[in-house]
Simulated assay, not measured.
Amino acid sequence: MVKARNLLNWAKRETGRGIGRMRGVALLALPLALTACGGDNVRDLMAHATAPCPNVGIISDAADLTRFRQGSQADLTALVVNASISGFQAKCDYAPKRDGLVVTLTPNFTAERGPASAGPTADIPYMVAVVGDNDQVLSRAAYTLRVEFPPNVAKVTSRGEEISITLAGTPAEAARRNVLIGFVLSPDELAANRRRGPR
């Protein structure tokens, strides 16, 4: 995981390299496909073509959440919950009439209950943002993951809800955007993550 700005720069470089490599393969394969198929089959092939995906990533500064009891100092006895975004599953499809892309995203989490936890559940806020050119945030939505800790279990893994995001524009324009996942942090929590660095 890297910081959001570095993630965007890296994603653009890697995407450009991938497109360059794939372009030659696609141009060579297309005449063979057209030769092998009749006109109706070509339309079927295009209808079932795999949609491109935007760059999806985790913001390193917001990949961890260490929450302490409100009003307490940041020490272990005041720890309520410690959570991390451990990964995600993402898939892409064309929007109706190919007017953009639909990204389906499911984040994964690990959470550890602290000594100051008030009960067997913890509500963990996270967000998904769509970022365009020049790191401009185009949209942002907040979600809450409710984690349940069984008796005598301090650490669990959990899956967030399946999120569907529609990216408007042509498929090529939509694929140039970036979809970023992170926790919703207080200024103090964000500052602590930046001091510590990625885990």
Score class of each variant (00 low, 15 high):
residue 134 N to C: 00
residue 64 D to N: 11
residue 59 I to M: 07
residue 135 D to I: 01
residue 136 Q to W: 01
residue 82 N to E: 12
residue 8 L to Q: 10
residue 82 N to H: 01
residue 177 R to W: 06
residue 53 C to D: 09
residue 114 G to V: 14
residue 34 L to R: 12
residue 30 L to M: 10
residue 147 V to I: 12
residue 80 V to S: 00
residue 153 V to Q: 06
residue 82 N to S: 14
residue 10 W to I: 04
residue 179 V to A: 11
residue 7 L to T: 02
residue 66 T to F: 04
residue 141 A to T: 08
residue 46 M to N: 13
residue 45 L to I: 15
residue 123 D to F: 07
residue 196 R to E: 13
residue 147 V to K: 03
residue 103 V to C: 05
residue 37 C to S: 10
residue 111 A to F: 08
residue 161 E to C: 04
residue 127 M to V: 13
residue 180 L to Y: 14
residue 113 R to T: 14
residue 74 A to S: 04
residue 45 L to C: 13
residue 43 R to Q: 11
residue 139 S to R: 03
residue 122 A to L: 01
residue 15 T to L: 10
residue 57 G to S: 07
residue 167 L to C: 13
residue 29 A to G: 03
residue 98 R to F: 13
residue 191 A to H: 08
residue 51 A to R: 07
residue 12 K to I: 06
residue 122 A to R: 02
residue 103 V to M: 05
residue 79 L to Q: 04
residue 153 V to I: 05
residue 117 S to T: 05
residue 93 D to F: 12
residue 174 A to W: 00
residue 96 P to F: 06
residue 105 L to V: 07
residue 4 A to D: 06
residue 158 S to R: 07
residue 114 G to L: 10
residue 151 P to E: 08
residue 29 A to I: 02
residue 146 R to W: 03
residue 35 T to E: 04
residue 33 A to F: 05
residue 69 R to Q: 08
residue 171 P to C: 13
residue 55 N to G: 06
residue 129 A to E: 11
residue 151 P to Q: 10
residue 61 D to P: 06
residue 65 L to W: 09
residue 114 G to I: 03
residue 7 L to D: 01
residue 184 V to P: 05
residue 121 T to D: 11
residue 174 A to C: 05
residue 80 V to N: 00
residue 64 D to A: 15
residue 197 G to W: 14
residue 130 V to R: 05
residue 157 T to R: 12
residue 40 D to Y: 10
residue 93 D to E: 14
residue 193 N to D: 05
residue 94 Y to C: 10
residue 106 T to Y: 11
residue 110 T to C: 09
residue 33 A to N: 10
residue 13 R to V: 13
residue 4 A to Y: 03
residue 84 S to M: 02
residue 19 I to M: 12
residue 179 V to P: 02
residue 22 M to A: 10
residue 57 G to H: 04
residue 93 D to K: 14
residue 25 V to Y: 03
residue 146 R to A: 09
residue 59 I to D: 08
residue 185 L to I: 15
